[in-house]
Nucleic acid binder design. Structure first.
Lengths: 202, 202
DNA sequence: GGACAGACTGGCAGCGACTGCGAGCCCGCA
DNA sequence: TGCGGGCTCGCAGTCGCTGCCAGTCTGTCC
């Protein structure tokens, strides 16, 4: 409702907001630490809440589900993705547009180390994988009209083709991130993405 | 362990096997009916067990998880997929090989109606979607060596490229099935698959 | 035919994620 | 200083899922 405390640099207006933000960060840090230390499935909500100094009930009010403790920014990812893509020039090709979106999202990560830790956790935990993929499906749906608008509706409906192109871009991102993780973060992920896409479209 | 009662037409040897198969089918039918009638999330395990005439404990012994009640054959899908692909001639191109695998899996469905009902349920239920996608990731991993063996290792490692190609094939299958469902099962899904793949590789 | 071993079943207690509710607290504002 | 509203907490309860123990039924061997 209130448009205050928006930018990351902007100071929170009220003491409450500050407290909230602090608690939120504390929970997030505790969760990430425990997940990395002992694994996602082996970490219980009770433990995170205890170590973060809040009740389970409060934790669930901050983050609706356990997996949100890792993917809380995921909504922001979706936002950046759609924003970046809709900002691309009208004449740009579909693949360039999608590449720009992927690059923008990857640029959001704080550090290489954190990105690696998260991707590793993601790829090694089945339940997280599942949730992540499902959320991504929704991003794909949001992207659909944007990409469809950039395709020429010469023959037949553009929907299936647009869907396929979007899903392929994400598939290449998957292949790239998996390879990146198994290489322990060596090299640039966008290079891997390009290589994957080239292999598909060659 | 025992190689008996293999083919669908072969009569089960022992009375136990027959009872088991009967109970299993009863549970599966009840679950599918309830899922379609009132939705997946709204149907509880207790209700399925009650209407199928077994205890919850027994139900979980037959099917390890709720989502297996819809995707129990999914393991069979994976088997057919890998079998079909490894049976393809050595000279066949990667895309033809993958297409054959996809076609073989799609051919496993009993009837068009049942396939439509399942796909519809799948695409409309987030939790099911998530589980399905996660299982499919494992299929992709199993396919990886098969596809890698069919790529020329001319430049760099084949792993990321093989991953991308496999994931793309599945991405096209996704786009095709979604379109197929939103068209209420009109047309052939393999045609849609071809169209999607063509759009990606054009 | 009877006894035995093994598999299958059911019920119960319990765990972990998650939610609704009522009570109490504390901040912000008047 | 007091009031109102949002926030926190604890509790109880639901649902998926598992371990355990006892009871039952099947197939087999004597």
């Amino acid at each position: 409702m209130k448009p205050e405390a928006e930018t990351a640099t902007g100071a929170p207006t009220t003491l409450w907001d500050r407290t909230r933000q602090l608690a939120s960060q504390e929970i997030l840090d505790t969760a990430l630490r425990l997940f990395i230390e002992q694994g996602y499935d082996e970490t219980t909500i009770a433990q995170i809440a205890r170590e973060a100094g809040v009740s389970q009930r409060t934790l669930f009010r901050y983050f609706g589900a356990k997996e949100d403790l890792l993917g809380a920014d995921q909504d922001r990812f979706g936002q950046v993705l759609t924003d970046t893509i809709s900002e691309q020039p009208a004449g740009a090709g579909i693949w360039e547009v999608l590449r720009a979106g992927v690059a923008a999202v990857l640029a959001l990560h704080d550090s290489r180390e954190q990105a690696l830790a998260r991707f590793r956790l993601l790829h090694n935990t089945a339940s997280l994988c599942a949730g992540y993929l499902e959320k991504r499906l929704r991003f794909q749906d949001e992207l659909l009209p944007l990409i469809e608008a950039r395709m020429d509706a010469a023959v037949g409906s553009t929907a299936p083709r647009a869907r396929a192109v979007i899903a392929t871009a994400f598939a290449c991102l998957d292949a790239a991130s998996m390879t990146w993780v198994s290489n322990d973060g060596k090299g640039d992920m966008m290079d891997l993405y390009d290589e994957c896409l080239a292999a598909v479209r060659s």
